[in-house]
Simulated assay, not measured.
Amino acid sequence: MADTLREQQMRMARFIRDPQSNPPPPGIEARRLAVYRRLFFGNVQSLLAGSFPVLQASLGPERWLALIESFYANHRCQTPLFTEVAGELVEYLQNRADQPGWVAELAHYEWIETVLMLSDGTELAHDPNGDLLQGVPLLSCLAAPLAYAWPVSHIGPGRIPPQVPTTPTLLLACRGADHKVHFSRLAPLAHALLVSLQERQVSGREHLAGLAARAGIEPGTIETLGLELLINLKSQGVVLGTRLHERPVRL
């Protein structure tokens, strides 16, 4: 009996997920099945529409519906939390080569705002007055450097570039003291420095030396500019200060 019940439940779930590819379970009238389909699919579509309003508007009703139907039918979410379903769509779009490149990037751009808004991350212990060159600068857990091939901050209905631009869009997303997520444009050096802070626990001087080496220039050439940049990022709350109880890790 248990196996029979489970099989009935699975047939019901498969049909509701993708009625075009799966037969309906026996003994349930089509009208009732349609109600279940509208209920479950409608909830997911409504949830995702609220998370990706610009993507929905940019795709238009038909393409948006087709995308969400495909996601609903083919993706297996790894989370039971409604607040994390948007991240599942972002992951799904990373593997959809049939979609224009701007679709996945715009979805990620909209999603990161929700991630930072809902984040309950705790900042690590730090010295707010630490030496940003000698010490190990600490990036706020509520800040994220972003790089996109498409100009995601300007895409919208009727504003889709015909081709990918020659220069990337470099952005900083950061949740401020007002608990709102703010986006700002980044120069290439600022973006590279923030990514380095995100990836490596070394002194500020070593971060700048690494950037200089990649650019093929002398470290002293950018150290003054880099220190000014670190100080400016600290004034914005993006860099918190320097890490405590840690020695710089030399890589």
Rank of each mutant, 00 (worst) to 15 (best):
H245V: 13
R17C: 07
G87M: 06
E206Q: 11
S70P: 08
R17N: 03
P25V: 04
Q45H: 13
L170H: 08
E105S: 00
Q45R: 15
D98N: 10
E105M: 01
Q56M: 11
W64K: 07
E91N: 14
D131Q: 14
G27A: 10
F183Y: 13
K234E: 13
A209G: 14
A97W: 03
P24Q: 10
N22T: 03
Q236F: 00
D127K: 11
L189W: 02
L229Y: 01
G87P: 05
E206W: 06
M12L: 15
L65Q: 12
L124P: 04
A147I: 04
A34L: 12
T242P: 12
I217G: 12
H154D: 15
N232C: 12
L193E: 03
A86F: 04
P80C: 06
G158A: 09
Y92I: 08
L171P: 02
R76N: 10
P248M: 02
V54T: 15
L67R: 02
Y148F: 15
E105I: 01
N129W: 09
S235H: 08
G156Y: 07
R214F: 03
L208P: 05
R214G: 14
A173C: 07
Q78Y: 07
V115Q: 02
S21F: 00
R214K: 11
L118N: 14
L142W: 05
F40D: 10
W64H: 05
A192R: 04
A144W: 12
T166R: 08
F15R: 07
R31C: 02
G216E: 14
A125I: 13
F52E: 01
E206V: 09
L171D: 05
L194I: 09
G42S: 10
I222L: 13
V152L: 03
I68M: 11
L211R: 06
R63G: 01
D178I: 07
L211Q: 01
S140G: 09
V202H: 04
S46E: 09
I112F: 07
H75T: 00
Q134F: 07
I155Q: 08
V195M: 06
P128C: 13
L142Q: 04
G121N: 07
V164Q: 15
L93R: 14
G121K: 12
L133R: 13
S184Y: 10
A104V: 12
A104K: 09
T221H: 09
G42Q: 06
H108M: 02
E29R: 14
F15T: 05
A107P: 07
A209V: 05
L59T: 10
Q94C: 03
T79D: 15
L146S: 00
Q201K: 13
A57Y: 05
E246D: 06
L139C: 10
L132Y: 03
R31A: 15
A192G: 12
G210S: 04
A187H: 12
N129R: 15
R96A: 04
N129D: 03
A13D: 04
I160E: 01
T83E: 14
R175V: 11
L39D: 11
A190F: 00
I112M: 10
T122F: 04
S203H: 03
V195L: 03
H108L: 07
I155S: 03
R175D: 11
L233Q: 08
D3H: 05
G216P: 09
P188T: 03
L211I: 08
N43V: 08
A177K: 06
R37M: 03
L227C: 04
S46T: 14
R14T: 01
T4S: 10
C174F: 09
G135L: 00
P24R: 01
R185V: 09
L251P: 10
V35Y: 00
T169R: 01
S70I: 02
G50M: 06
